[in-house]
Amino acid sequence: MSKVILITGATKGFGRIWAEAFLKRGDRVVATGRNTVALEDLKKEYGDLVLPIQLDVNDRKAAFEAVNQAKEHFGRIDVLINNAGYGLFGAVEETSEEEARNQMETNFFGVLWLSQAVLPIMREQKSGHIIQVSSFLGLVTLPVLGLYNASKFAVEGLSETLASEVKDFGINVTLIEPNGYTTDWSGESAFQTKSLQVYDAVKAGFNEAVSTPGIFGNPQATANVVLNLVDNENPPLRLLFGSFAYPAVKKVYEERLESFAEWKSVSDEAHGA
């Protein structure tokens, strides 16, 4: 049975790849983006299977209107994929208030607004799957991506909580946590802070680390994985994407547990009698 999939940020990158994969197998797709001109070819090829909607996910009212339009058009929403987001590159000290707020508005609040908007529909259906495109940088951090890291850590906490609240309504929540991929996330879609020279060495180290051969995954390879994920009756809460994500997360979590254990007596003392 075909599903109705709502994907934000569907004009390029993961969103575009996944929208096409769903359409090719006969699912119906609500494809949103800031500029729906980039979706005209999908509409031409797949006709009534696709509903393009212009949407800025930062606009809460528009998010609710888009979800309601999708429900009215297709009658239901089986899967929400919160994919819209972008990278902000720069040291924490370099980041302006506007840059910081904009990063959180899109990467965190956009996720929140769409999730809130779709929940009444999924509760009424007694079924649904909310997929949040987070990052392995919602579990570990890299320098020069402080606000991006923070936005994805926020998505992780929100979504883990949400999963515990909606499970009894038949709604699943999954966090997709990719390592780097060869999309334009770090290219045209990215934003850069105004540089302070004192952080040049930190940035040089970052650039060297991300130049490791093979570190970036092939985004096309994720399509079948996402198709299988939405078909799974018992999907995971978290799913790492890419071969570099797991060892990076494993190393950091082992170090955290060691540090917690080392300082446990101090933690106990802080509890009091």
Rank of each mutant, 00 (worst) to 15 (best):
T8I: 11
Q192V: 10
R28N: 10
L80D: 04
D268N: 15
V266P: 06
E165G: 06
A21Y: 02
N218F: 06
R238S: 07
Q220P: 00
A62H: 02
R60H: 05
M1Y: 12
E160T: 10
V166P: 01
A150F: 00
S127M: 13
V67E: 00
L142C: 12
V4T: 15
H129A: 05
I215P: 03
N58D: 09
A10L: 09
Y148M: 01
A221Q: 11
K43M: 12
A190W: 11
I17D: 01
P247Y: 07
A100F: 14
S159R: 07
E188N: 15
L42E: 01
T182C: 12
S243L: 12
Y199K: 01
F64L: 11
E124V: 08
P247V: 08
A19Q: 03
F89H: 05
G13Y: 00
F206Y: 12
K264E: 13
T161W: 01
I17M: 06
R60L: 06
R123G: 04
W113S: 02
K3T: 13
L147M: 15
V173E: 01
S127F: 11
A201R: 13
V155P: 06
A63V: 01
L147E: 03
T183E: 05
A66E: 03
L257E: 13
G146L: 06
Y253C: 07
